[in-house]
Computed example of a mutant assay.
Amino acid sequence: MDPIPPKNDDRSNPNPLAVDLHKLGQLVCDARVRCELNIRDAADGIGVSPRVLSRIESGESVGTERLFKVLKDFGLAMLVMPNGDADVALEALGHTVNWEDIVARQSPATLSGPRPSLVLGRTTPTLFVDYDGTLHAGHALVDEHGQITLDSGRAMFEFAPLLVEMLEPYPSVEIVLTTSWLETLHEEKVISYLPAKLARRVVGTTQGRKARFSYFRDGTGRTDIITSYAFGKRLKHWLAIDDSVYGADSFGYVPGELMGNFVLLDSTRGISDEGAQQRIRDWLVEVHTDNCTQRGQTS
């Protein structure tokens, strides 16, 4: 199909910048309206289903091949360029853009307006546990035979007995593993390195989860992955002990609201640090008390 020729309309000069799917959908919708086509007729002409075109215009995701087909047949082009070059192009078209405002509007911590509340219905205490810099000092090195040693020269999991001891009075606490070992080893193999008393608490891992690019780029990828997991599972009581959970003050709907959920460890001391141990013990007491109170109210 040849590109659909838009009807000339000199009365408006819409900003062509699409910073999210909703804006992109609006631009596609505007193009269709200028062509004086309803969704069904436009979809038939392009060769996609009306549902696909409707999803695009509503700001919902579709396959990239279908998205580009719709753009091409509406005579729309997508350009990918640095912000500075986009500034020049937009200025030539009579538009300006404030990138700081755009980033602020897209940030989960600063989005304004009504928002559906996130119901954190799962009250089981959940501890996100790293290996390197947490259960031992230093980071793992894997040789050509698959043997693992630590760059610190220390023993692996030397601090694990401390965690076993802290969790002993709290049998309901579950563990989710966040270690980078999951990137190269099978999940079952990673769990097998733990002492049995910790291994049997493991209910999941973050294996296969990817941080959003902006967080990966600024070094807060692990924090993003853990936060996404916790919100996705609707966890109410959770704590992450990890030497890579940077930038926790930037996560959550309100800046700083999740800082208490992260214990950023010194990789040379891990959970042998007395301050870190106190944080963990305080959290265990807090969630145990809260769960006991809730059970008393519902009994």
Rank of each mutant, 00 (worst) to 15 (best):
N83E: 03
S299I: 06
G232C: 06
E187V: 11
G219I: 02
S214Q: 04
R295C: 10
F159I: 09
V19Y: 13
S152V: 08
I225P: 01
I175A: 13
R234A: 14
K210D: 12
T227V: 05
V263P: 07
E174H: 14
Y246F: 14
R201M: 05
M1S: 15
L27R: 13
T110H: 02
T179R: 00
H186K: 14
P125G: 05
L24N: 07
E274R: 04
F231Y: 14
E36Y: 03
V88A: 10
A137K: 09
T123N: 09
H288V: 05
F68L: 00
D143P: 00
R115H: 15
V164N: 05
G221Y: 15
G47F: 02
H186N: 12
T206Y: 15
S228D: 13
P255G: 02
G275H: 08
D101A: 15
E174C: 14
V142W: 02
F68Y: 01
K69D: 04
A86H: 09
R279H: 14
L194N: 10
T179D: 01
L76F: 05
E65W: 07
L284N: 09
G146T: 06
V129I: 04
E100Y: 08
S172L: 11
R115F: 15
P195D: 13
I225K: 09
L258S: 02
I39C: 12
R201D: 04
L76E: 04
V190F: 10
L118I: 12
M78I: 04
A31C: 03
G260K: 01
I56C: 10
G247Q: 11
N98F: 01
P171Y: 06
H22V: 03
V202D: 12
H22E: 06
R212C: 07
I280E: 09
E60Y: 08
